[in-house]
Amino acid sequence: MMLDNFERLILKFLQQNGRASTQELSDAVGLSPSPCWRRMKKLEDEGYITRYAAIVDGKKLGLHALAYVHVSLMDHSETSIDLFHSFIETAEEVIECASITGEFDFVLKVAATDPEDLERFIMKRINRLGVVRTTTTNFILRQSKVAGALPVAL
């Protein structure tokens, strides 16, 4: 599906305000409510919009330790990779996971209450999977930008 400018504007606006009413969205992009709603529904049906979520302040929840954990698996067998992916899908502490090139296989963004909590997560959960060769952790000292929104060219 090729996106037109209205659809791109809808995507840009919804990334900033996912709770916008159809009227607010239609006013922002310059369409009447019915066509705007149909385009938004089409973007959902086509998979451009995968879900709606609230952005929560982790510090207010007591999550004061954020880190990037680089993970190298012992091997790249289907069993090892499936086990690791299953773990990642259920571990609430892992807020992002990406397979990467280079020295490590994956990089995880992990949220914990404090450094000790992060250590427990790595030592007692990740390392005990039985498929992890090594991990390296980089604490996030300060986040300069947390956008979440993807660039949408107009």
Rank of each mutant, 00 (worst) to 15 (best):
residue 53 A to Y: 15
residue 45 D to S: 09
residue 56 V to D: 00
residue 74 M to E: 08
residue 74 M to D: 06
residue 44 E to Y: 00
residue 77 S to L: 06
residue 45 D to N: 14
residue 62 G to T: 09
residue 72 S to F: 02
residue 58 G to K: 02
residue 72 S to K: 14
residue 39 R to W: 06
residue 58 G to S: 14
residue 43 L to E: 05
residue 40 M to C: 09
residue 52 Y to K: 15
residue 39 R to K: 15
residue 64 H to K: 13
residue 59 K to M: 11
residue 63 L to P: 01
residue 36 C to D: 04
residue 43 L to A: 10
residue 76 H to N: 04
residue 42 K to T: 12
residue 36 C to K: 06
residue 37 W to G: 01
residue 50 T to E: 11
residue 47 G to V: 01
residue 45 D to E: 14
residue 59 K to N: 12
residue 52 Y to N: 12
residue 43 L to K: 10
residue 73 L to R: 07
residue 42 K to M: 12
residue 59 K to I: 02
residue 40 M to F: 10
residue 54 A to I: 07
residue 53 A to T: 14
residue 76 H to Q: 04
residue 45 D to W: 00
residue 70 H to R: 08
residue 72 S to C: 07
residue 62 G to A: 11
residue 54 A to T: 09
residue 57 D to I: 01
residue 61 L to V: 07
residue 70 H to A: 13
residue 55 I to C: 06
residue 76 H to A: 05
residue 56 V to G: 00
residue 65 A to L: 04
residue 44 E to H: 00
residue 75 D to W: 01
residue 57 D to E: 10
residue 58 G to F: 03
residue 62 G to K: 09
residue 61 L to T: 05
residue 60 K to V: 12
residue 56 V to N: 01
residue 49 I to M: 06
residue 66 L to Y: 03
residue 66 L to H: 12
residue 60 K to R: 10
residue 40 M to A: 11
residue 71 V to P: 08
residue 69 V to D: 06
residue 56 V to S: 04
residue 43 L to T: 08
residue 69 V to S: 13
residue 65 A to C: 15
residue 57 D to Q: 10
residue 68 Y to V: 10
residue 39 R to G: 06
residue 66 L to E: 14
residue 35 P to V: 04
residue 77 S to K: 08
residue 53 A to N: 09
residue 39 R to I: 06
residue 40 M to Q: 15
residue 37 W to V: 02
residue 41 K to I: 00
residue 55 I to K: 15
residue 38 R to G: 01
residue 63 L to W: 05
residue 46 E to N: 02
residue 43 L to S: 08
